[in-house]
Computed example of a mutant assay.
Amino acid sequence: MKLDIRNLHRDLGYLYIGLIIALSISGILQNHRDYWKPEKYTVDTKHVSVLLPQDEKELTDDFAKKLRESFGRQR
């Protein structure tokens, strides 16, 4: 069997199209998994509002740590 570049290009295209479709479907399933088995997953959301300092120099790691602690979040 003679393998030329055109056949190789076609076969690789089929492979990549199959991978794209499979990964797209699995991504959609992962993104919406709480709709199919809601008894297994819980989603908690909380609306927060943060007042940021006007000066960019005050946006440091310490500021972020204090902000995280104020929300009761651990690392």
Score class of each variant (00 low, 15 high):
L59C: 07
N7L: 14
Y16M: 11
D4H: 14
R73E: 08
G18S: 06
R73Q: 10
A22F: 08
P38Q: 00
P53L: 05
S26P: 01
P53H: 06
D4F: 12
D44Q: 13
M1Y: 11
F71R: 00
T45G: 06
K2A: 11
R75S: 06
K2S: 13
A22G: 02
Y16R: 08
S26V: 04
D4C: 09
L67Q: 03
L51K: 14
K65G: 03
H9W: 15
T60Y: 04
F71S: 00
G13H: 11
D55T: 10
V43T: 08
L12S: 09
S70V: 00
L19K: 06
L67H: 01
H47I: 12
R73A: 09
I25F: 04
R75Q: 07
V48P: 00
R6G: 08
L19G: 02
Y16G: 03
L3Y: 13
I25L: 07
Y41M: 00
E39Q: 07
W36V: 10
V50Y: 03
Q30I: 05
K66I: 03
Y41I: 03
Y41P: 01
P38G: 00
L8Q: 10
K46H: 01
D4G: 12
H9T: 15
R75F: 07
D44M: 10
L23N: 07
H9R: 15
Y14E: 12
E69Q: 09
R6W: 15
V48R: 02
Q74P: 02
Q30F: 13
G18F: 02
K37S: 07
Q30R: 11
K57L: 08
I5M: 10
Q30H: 07
N7V: 10
M1Q: 14
P38D: 00
G72E: 01
L19C: 07
K40M: 04
S26G: 04
Q74F: 10
H9Y: 13
T42K: 10
L15Q: 13
K57Q: 11
T45Y: 06
S24F: 03
P38R: 00
D34G: 03
E58V: 07
G18K: 02
P53R: 04
L23I: 06
E39W: 03
K46Q: 09
D61W: 09
S24R: 00
D44T: 10
R10L: 14
K66W: 02
I28G: 01
A22N: 05
T42P: 00
L29K: 05
R6Y: 14
S70K: 09
I28V: 08
D55M: 05
K57T: 12
D44A: 12
N7I: 12
R75H: 06
P38C: 00
V48K: 04
S70A: 08
L29Q: 06
Q54L: 14
